[in-house]
């Protein structure tokens, strides 16, 4: 590969209603294997991916939390969360199981600017 593109993945869907969250994790892990610098932003309904105590088995799904927790092993530790989305969904930063840096709208614009490729899920 010619160079290492900085990849930003934006997760905008709740964890289990559609396959987006799992699809996104698979892409992040694959890009991690190729040693591409990855950042992940959780926004809109995607903020629900960060809360804990998922009972995914009750609806025939695999729990995604363990996969999220494993990201640092793939050198993926740049996780961000949209502050406005947290507020909109009645979540507080302290209620998140997975830590992520809070960003306001202006900081999110800058985050997007700072990456070569943006993938949305």
């Amino acid at each position: 590969m010619p160079d290492k593109k900085k990849v930003l993945i934006i997760n905008r869907r709740a964890p289990y209603g559609r396959s987006n969250a799992r699809d996104s994790l698979d892409v992040a892990l694959t890009c991690g294997v190729f040693e591409m610098p990855i950042s992940i932003l959780f926004a809109d309904d995607g903020v629900f991916q960060l809360i804990g105590n998922h009972q995914a088995g009750d609806i025939g799904q695999k729990n995604l939390s363990a996969n999220l927790a494993a990201l640092p092993m793939y050198d993926i530790d740049q996780l961000f969360v949209c502050t406005e989305s947290l507020n909109t969904h009645g979540l507080t930063f302290d209620s998140l199981e997975h830590s992520a840096t809070q960003l306001d709208q202006t900081a999110i614009q800058q985050l997007i600017q700072d990456h070569d490729v943006v993938l949305t899920f």
Partner: peptide, 15 residues
């Protein structure tokens, strides 16, 4: 596989 997506990201100006 997804490696083809990673390759596409690496090779393309825009995804």
């Amino acid at each position: 596989g997804l490696g083809q997506l990673a390759d596409a990201i690496a090779q393309s100006d825009r995804v």
